[in-house]
Computed example of a mutant assay.
Amino acid sequence: MASRLIRSKATVTGLRSVQNLSSLAVPSTLEQVPEDSEIKSKCKIFASDDWKCVDNAVKRIFKDEDLLTFQGEFFKLHQNVENILRSKTGTFLSDCYKEWITKEMIPVIGKLKRLDRSTFLQRLEDVWISFYSKTLPLLEAIFYQVKPKGRLSIRCTTLVAFRDVILLSSDIEEAVPAYGADVSPEIRRMILLLQNVNDSYPPSKNKIRMESLAARICSPFMGYMGMYQKGYLVVTSSEPMHAARRRPSAVEVGGPRRISRPFSVQPHQMDTLNELFKTAVRHQDRK
């Protein structure tokens, strides 16, 4: 029966599951496609069902549950995301996404902090491999319709959250040797990849910390602060001085200021609206 739910035996969440995504992203029968799938003109102010479905999908991914189980599951989640983006609350999706993944990452760092130094890097490597090969691709596949906010795409937002919440919340500087001699290839790859994520200019304190870590495992290393040799800054760059001389609007997160909202809405007012909306989302989840 074409419309029955089928379990894909070959489905493996990760980078090698591309061959299965085509069947999971398409409903098993055309009857499952809603008549108003192309446009939803009359959106509710708060589409609670859509928000809850997407939030639950994020939780399942971080709990390593088998999300790619039923045919058409990705299609339904894409419809949920599309409905949210078309609604009046769609502008808050990026902020809520960041809050969702941050909340799911906090328990992970709690477990890592309880480990001794001898097992910390090995466990961190396992966490990174699972995150980068399974969690990140699935999140990108679900939220591919969400446009970047400033310079922060869904991929960049997720990597920055891993950097700030998991990696730099641990004692990573103490675990990585001064010359990085005993660091595994996967930990090296993780540090260099996260160091290459540009989420703001001038770089944030966490970005500078990543630069210092990268200089330990890669020598010589050229970064924002200058040139490093064996983990030490030997040639200072003039870039920080030039960045400090620029106008404030040119060094804000996301680059030069862009008009993306009415002139009557000030930045602090937008932050207040974001907080009020996220409070409403949490209130709906408790019901």
Rank of each mutant, 00 (worst) to 15 (best):
M1K: 14
S8V: 09
R16D: 10
R16Y: 07
L21N: 08
L24H: 15
V26H: 15
S28I: 09
E35D: 11
D36W: 06
E38C: 15
E38S: 14
K40R: 12
I45P: 00
F46E: 10
W51Y: 06
K52A: 06
C53D: 11
D55I: 11
D64C: 11
Q71K: 09
E73L: 03
K76P: 03
L77E: 06
H78V: 06
Q79P: 07
N83E: 06
L85H: 00
S87F: 00
T91V: 09
L93A: 01
S94Y: 06
Y97E: 02
I101W: 04
M105G: 01
G110P: 00
G110D: 13
R114Q: 14
T119C: 10
T119W: 04
F120N: 00
L121S: 02
L121A: 00
R123C: 08
E125P: 02
L136N: 04
L139S: 01
F143T: 05
K147C: 09
G150R: 07
R151P: 01
I154M: 05
T157F: 03
T158L: 07
L159W: 04
F162I: 00
D164L: 03
L167I: 14
A178E: 13
A181N: 11
I187G: 05
M190V: 05
I191M: 01
L192Q: 07
L193D: 12
S200V: 02
P202F: 12
K207P: 04
K207D: 15
I217W: 07
S219V: 00
S219R: 04
S219P: 05
P220K: 10
P220T: 05
F221I: 01
G223A: 03
M227C: 15
Q229N: 15
Q229Y: 14
G231N: 06
G231L: 02
G231T: 01
L233N: 06
S237H: 03
S238W: 10
E239A: 08
H242V: 12
A243T: 10
S249H: 01
S249M: 10
V251I: 15
R258F: 02
R261V: 02
P262Q: 01
P262G: 04
F263Q: 12
F263Y: 05
V265C: 08
Q266H: 10
H268L: 14
D271L: 11
D271N: 13
E275H: 05
F277T: 05
A280L: 15
H283T: 13
H283K: 13
R286V: 12
K287V: 12
